[in-house]
Design a protein around this nucleic acid. Structure first.
Lengths: 406, 406
DNA sequence: AAAGTTAGTTTTGTTGCGAAACAAATTGGT
DNA sequence: ACCAATTTGTTTCGCAACAAAACTAACTTT
């Protein structure tokens, strides 16, 4: 709520900076027109921003008649952000610039869920590596975002779920990383971070509401509602993995029956393959210790059994997504996570089911795509969280953040 | 987005008026403290509000020491709002004051879906009746809200769904009522209006996110997200009635199979009763043309068959609500619509299913209640929409609305 | 009665906006 | 080459709205 004229300037500063960032290059008049402010005000605001290294003037552009506008350009490389994707069994760490470009990346397998202390040490090591590779010193690094495979609970949404991350009870991830790296740290759910990444840099830039569905070991959903992450009243929104698909379905790790996750998560897909093999079904996969990549590879090679398994998963996902569309009516559904490596083999039956199960015409025609950012989506989203928190959260002293006059 | 000092006053005016309205009576200091503004500013703002008849000073209240604060009191009876609930087969029209108190009400059966012209004439007649009974003249009536049993589509969310309201294609409800009554008219979906009513006057006052589920001929869901009605990207959010409960379930009027509506809507319940009777099941209901009220009455009398039918509906609803809780995590679920007359008979199995099917602990403990406003909820919500649109929508010239100096 | 306390008002100073005037940079016509 | 027309950006000025501080009002305690 803006209620005093001081906040008006802060607010306008934020808005103008945001417009330049989104446009890349833009002139003062164009800002004035789009922001519904006078040119004189924009001059003043821009003069406050120019001393920071976040924007600079960069020549002119030809116009039909009259003085040529001076372009203001955003320095996407002025700062770096660090992002961590803590998977159940892997780590991805990125350094990113302000334009969403990945400057350095590390990916490795690690038993995160069961080893909190070692995980934190490993995350620190990887953070320092990418920070060094990207070549940004401490002052030019704005902060660290961490995506965790768990909903965040508690008053301040800062506690990991004890159900999913039982080994992490009592560990203060945020504090430990902040103390070690001496940078601001923000923690959020992995599916939310995927959604944020797609909203900022991926397919979601033009829509106000989208859902990012991550299908990996767990099945989660990040919701962007009215352009911002929606967490729900208690912080557990988006648990699509535990919506019921089949009341009499298999038992899920959460204790319920027939959850989407128990039917399309990685363990479920591997179990389905194993069950078919045990039934004596012939397949290229017989006698191997299979991974999702193996299943996808065999399916691509034309092996009928894995194809069937993947298509079945697609139909289950389609059912859950159709229900999501009917209920939440987002403008876009983005799919991420390892299971989406299956590509069209998964997407075709999924889309078919959505068409069959959508009420409104707009939903039947809803755009459903694979993540544009692929495997990196969650880590990139985590890094993006830092920008979002520092620049978009009201009350953040923006001049201090960007290093303007104080 | 507030960006010029002119809007600052408008914004503060709105905020202060809102605080007095919500508090009923409040002193200037308390407003200053809560609004984070100086006492001098509040004095000025209040001095702009006092000439309108929306607030007045009303004596003092004792304090521990020092000058007693002067209470400012909101005149809930200064204006009236009219609300219309267009059901599929009934009409409810209310006149309401600014405090959510119903001043006059008309309820009657009417085949709304199939007779647009007659419906509009009838609505006008009822509107004039309640307006007269409430005793407010034209100037003291702020406007009319209309709830329709259809999602609103199109760019400006002003077109009725042709699927649900096929007889109404081409009818401009808003324009016709506005022309006849010479008052501002706002139209929205019925479940949204129920949700709005519960958020303003019912059980939802303390939560930021809630779902109002209306179980009648159709099954709809209004969502309040971050304290405002959420409509989705295309305006069709909340269609819980057409989420899939059983892939092999009965055919729904929408063309899909196993929709919640096809299993718990009024026609579904009556069909279930009929099917049991046709099977030769003994019951008090045998040989009668039954309504939902009959089914509930028989169940209350201890007749096992209708009890079973109602409990089954409760379990289906519970399943859909559990999925809603997992996905959207609202702080409250409110049930409305004629089917909820069944009371605990419906609610107990519903709550039981929710407990069984909720992932997060917070959801298993989610509050699920019957509407506090009962049958009137939707009509009251429609009237409330007028307040919300006139006072809360940025850009509305508030001083003009409230009749301050211009 | 005097001192202390809290509520509300008035005065004064500051901030930040828009409007208007102005300066700068460009095109096009004569 | 020069001047009018046009558009961008800056400067000046007046106005609106806020906070701070001084002040008045009303009340309690000593």
């Amino acid at each position: 709520m803006i209620s005093d004229p001081n906040d008006v300037r802060e607010n306008n500063l934020r808005m103008v900076l945001d417009m330049i960032r989104e446009a890349g290059t833009i002139s003062r008049v164009d800002i004035a027109r789009a922001a519904q402010l006078s040119r004189s005000t924009i001059t003043n605001v821009v003069n406050e921003l120019l001393p920071t290294d976040l924007i600079h003037e960069s020549g002119t552009v030809s116009s039909v008649v009259g003085r040529r506008p001076i372009l203001l350009e955003f320095n996407y490389d002025a700062r770096a952000l660090l992002g961590v994707d803590m998977g159940a069994s892997h780590l991805t760490v990125v350094a990113m610039n302000l334009g969403g470009r990945v400057l350095a990346i590390r990916r490795e397998s690690f038993p995160v869920l069961t080893n909190p202390d070692q995980s934190i040490a490993e995350i620190q090591r990887l953070l320092r590596e990418v920070q060094a590779e990207a070549g940004y010193d401490q002052e030019k690094t704005w902060g660290i975002g961490i995506a965790v495979p768990s909903p965040l609970e508690g008053e301040k949404l800062d506690r990991l779920s004890p159900i999913i991350m039982s080994h992490w009870i009592g560990v203060d991830l945020k504090r430990e990383i902040r103390a070690a790296m001496r940078l601001p740290v923000f923690v959020d759910n992995d599916a939310n971070m995927g959604a944020l990444a797609e909203k900022w840099w991926g397919h979601g830039r033009e829509v106000h509401n989208l859902a990012f569905i991550k299908v990996a070991t767990g099945v989660g959903c990040g919701l962007i509602i009215n352009d911002t992450i929606y967490r729900g009243e208690g912080g557990t929104a988006g648990e699509i993995g535990h919506t019921s698909i089949d009341v009499n379905g298999p038992l899920c790790r959460c204790g319920l029956r027939g959850c989407l996750e128990a039917m399309t998560g990685v363990p479920a897909i591997l179990a389905a393959v194993q069950a078919e093999l045990d039934n004596g079904r012939p397949s290229l996969l017989a006698g191997k210790a299979v991974t999702v990549a193996d299943v996808v590879a065999a399916a691509r090679a034309g092996d009928p059994m894995p194809i069937e398994v993947i298509q079945r998963a697609g139909r289950y996902l389609g059912l859950a997504i159709a229900n999501l569309l009917n209920l939440v009516n987002p403008g876009l559904i983005v799919l991420g996570g390892s299971v989406t490596e299956a590509g069209d083999m998964l997407l075709s039956p999924l889309r078919q089911t959505v068409r069959e199960r959508s009420f409104a015409k707009s939903n039947a025609e809803a755009t459903i795509t694979m993540s544009r950012l692929g495997e990196d989506a969650v880590a990139v989203g985590a890094a993006t969280l830092v920008i979002q928190q520092l620049l978009h959260v009201p009350g953040m002293p923006i001049l201090q953040v960007i290093g303007g006059k104080m």
